[in-house]
Measured scan of single mutants.
Amino acid sequence: TEYKLVVVGAGGVGKSALTIQLIQNHFVDEYDPTIEDSYRKQVVIDGETCLLDILDTAGQEEYSAMRDQYMRTGEGFLCVFAINNTKSFEDIHQYREQIKRVKDSDDVPMVLVGNKCDLAARTVESRQAQDLARSYGIPYIETSAKTRQGVEDAFYTLVREIRQH
């Protein structure tokens, strides 16, 4: 089974770092803004072998026109913010609204991801993020692309959301 996953969120929150940590098991430290990259990885989730087709997208506003296209083809979405960047957390709402509009559905598989949880300088409390996820009816997972904490959990949870859909 193949799953088309799309990673969305503001610029600099760590979308590529999360994806590369999942696929290649290493942490990319330097920031190089993405336009669009796709990665494929075969994994076993709950005993089922599946192929993850992951689209890593641009957070930069100037590429926002490309969003409709990949939102149409994606089956599930990782909505990523950084726990030390309140603005990126506030941006999640717009991504969710755009996904709902493009998919013409209120019920699209999504996982809210709070990345950079290895950093002490948190400005978005776990509780705020949990409340937001609960209001959307989606899971919330904290990750660190640096330490790998929660990385597999985030992507695998999204696959489970798609399966249950």
Results as ranks from 00 to 15, higher is better:
Val151Tyr: 13
His93Ala: 14
Leu52Cys: 11
Ile23His: 11
Val6Tyr: 07
Val7His: 03
Thr73Gln: 15
Leu18Asn: 04
Glu62Gly: 15
Tyr136Pro: 03
Glu152Thr: 09
Gln164Asp: 08
Met66Cys: 14
Gln69Leu: 07
Asp153Leu: 07
Gly9Phe: 01
Ala82Leu: 02
Arg127Pro: 06
Gln98Leu: 15
Val108Phe: 12
Phe81Val: 09
Gln42Tyr: 08
Val44Cys: 10
Asp46Gln: 07
Gly9Lys: 00
Val80Phe: 14
Leu119Ala: 15
Ser88Phe: 08
Ala154Ile: 15
Asp68Cys: 05
Gln24Asp: 07
Glu2Ala: 03
Lys146Cys: 14
Gly150Leu: 09
Asp56Arg: 01
Ala10Gln: 07
Lys41Thr: 11
Leu5Gln: 00
Val6Gly: 03
Gln24Thr: 14
Asp68Ser: 07
Arg134Pro: 02
Cys79Trp: 09
Phe81Ile: 11
Glu30Gln: 04
Val124Ile: 12
Gly12Val: 13
Ile138Phe: 06
Asp68Val: 04
Ile35Ser: 01
Gly137Trp: 02
Val28Gly: 04
Leu52Phe: 12
Thr147Ile: 09
Leu119Tyr: 13
Gln164Ala: 08
Ile20Phe: 01
Asp104Ala: 12
Lys15Trp: 00
Lys100His: 09
Ala82Gly: 14
Lys87Val: 08
Thr73Asp: 15
Ser105Leu: 11
Arg40Trp: 04
Cys117Ser: 10
Asp153Cys: 05
Asp104Lys: 11
Arg122Tyr: 14
Gln130Ser: 09
Arg67Ala: 14
Thr86Asn: 11
His165Phe: 12
Ile92Trp: 09
Ile99Tyr: 02
Asp37Lys: 00
Ser88Ile: 04
Ala129Ser: 04
Arg163Pro: 04
Gln60Asn: 15
Glu48Thr: 12
Val108Met: 09
Ile141Leu: 09
Lys116Gln: 14
Ala120Met: 06
Gln69Gly: 10
Thr73Asn: 14
Leu22Lys: 14
Asp29Val: 06
Glu97Ile: 04
Ser105Ala: 10
Lys41Trp: 12
Ser64Thr: 08
Ser38Met: 05
Arg67Thr: 15
Gly11Val: 10
Ala58Lys: 06
Val44Asp: 11
Glu125Ser: 12
Thr1Tyr: 11
Arg134Asp: 08
Phe155Ile: 14
Tyr136Leu: 14
Glu36Asp: 13
Ala120Ile: 07
Ile99Trp: 04
Lys100Asn: 05
His26Cys: 13
Gln21Asp: 14
Asn84Phe: 05
Cys50His: 06
Leu132Met: 11
Ile138Asp: 02
Ala65Tyr: 10
Glu36Lys: 01
Gly14Thr: 00
Ser16Thr: 07
Glu30Arg: 02
Leu55Arg: 02
Gly76Glu: 02
Ala133Glu: 03
Glu142Asp: 06
Ala133Leu: 04
Arg101His: 08
Pro109Gln: 04
Val111Ala: 05
Tyr63Phe: 11
Ile162Leu: 12
Thr143Val: 14
Asp118Glu: 13
Val80Arg: 01
Ser105Gly: 11
Tyr156Arg: 14
Thr73Trp: 14
Leu5Cys: 05
Glu125Asn: 10
Thr123Lys: 15
